[in-house]
Amino acid sequence: MEIQGRTVVLTGATSGIGAAAARRLAQEVGLLIVQGPESEADVSDLLRELRAAGSARVEYVSADFASFAEVRRAARYVLRTTDRIDVLINNAGVAGSRSRQLTADGNERTLQVNYLALVLWSDLLVPGMRDGARIVNVSSTTHRMTSLALDDISLAHGYDPVRAYAQSKLAIVTYSTWLAGRLPRGISVVAISPGVISTALLHSMFGGGGAPVAHGAERIREAVLADVPSGTYIDDGDVVAASDDALDETAQDRLAELTRRLTA
């Protein structure tokens, strides 16, 4: 897919890999709609930078993905702004909190922000996507560290921040694989791990190290452009098989049905 002059929606765009991706994309695309949890005033410096980076029109929508009401409000804003989305990049994410937290919607916070909101947001925006558009879901190689607790998806028992984070990333890959054959009008979906990137999230959960955020931004851009089938998983630039858990069709169906109930 060509990206020059296209319309791109990018979540989690105000810090880390997302901000780096926004800086890169603003040099090429025609319309860039970026989302973050902060108010527009709080990210005004970044927005000025993005608008000066190239010829892209840059719009900002503030939404806390811990609230489904805010996800719905933000999606309505996007659809009022454009009905010709070429690329949807779902990058928003948080680290697992030290102790288990529930959102006002009744879900474990990491699961909702990283995964459930991604599904709801995507479902709401698909009607505004062009034929042949692409969805890029940013996951993590940590999806291989755990299995889905489908009978206790909000981890009421045995909560651990790393487990919560890894499960949310496994859910993204599992759902992306399930979704691949079910999107309309030739829309494709790929899930990626951008690599081990030096971000505040990585450091808060796993310590120091990692590649620069520009590395992760380039992996996102590559996933947009990649000539790969819908449902592909890309790990740090390489097309590889996702974990056995993510590829389990029974788990995919169960997760999809559970997700629909939790986001209804």
Rank of each mutant, 00 (worst) to 15 (best):
A117N: 02
Q112E: 08
V126R: 14
L118K: 07
V138K: 02
M145R: 07
L124P: 00
Y175V: 02
T141W: 13
A180D: 10
V119Y: 07
Y165S: 05
T142E: 13
L88Y: 10
T141K: 12
I85V: 05
L120Q: 08
R163L: 13
N91E: 05
Y77S: 11
G106W: 15
R109T: 05
S154H: 15
H157I: 04
S99T: 15
I135H: 13
L155Q: 13
M129I: 07
A164Q: 11
D83Q: 12
S122E: 08
R80D: 15
T174P: 00
G158H: 08
V87H: 11
G128I: 12
G158A: 07
V78A: 01
V138W: 10
Q112F: 08
V119W: 04
E108A: 10
P127K: 13
Y77A: 10
I172M: 14
R72E: 15
G128S: 12
G158K: 10
T174A: 07
Y175G: 01
Y77Q: 14
V173D: 15
A95P: 04
A166Y: 07
G181V: 12
L150R: 02
L150N: 00
R80P: 00
R98Q: 11
V136R: 09
I172N: 15
S97Y: 09
M145P: 00
A95S: 15
W178C: 12
L125K: 13
Y115T: 00
A166N: 15
D86C: 05
N107Y: 10
T103M: 03
E70Q: 15
V138G: 00
G106E: 07
M145V: 03
Q101K: 11
I135W: 15
D160I: 06
G128N: 13
L150C: 01
M129V: 06
L111N: 00
V173W: 14
D86K: 05
L179Y: 04
V78T: 04
N91F: 03
R100M: 06
E70C: 04
I172H: 10
V94N: 00
D105Q: 02
M129H: 09
I135N: 09
L125E: 11
M129Q: 14
I153D: 00
R109F: 11
L118P: 00
R130A: 13
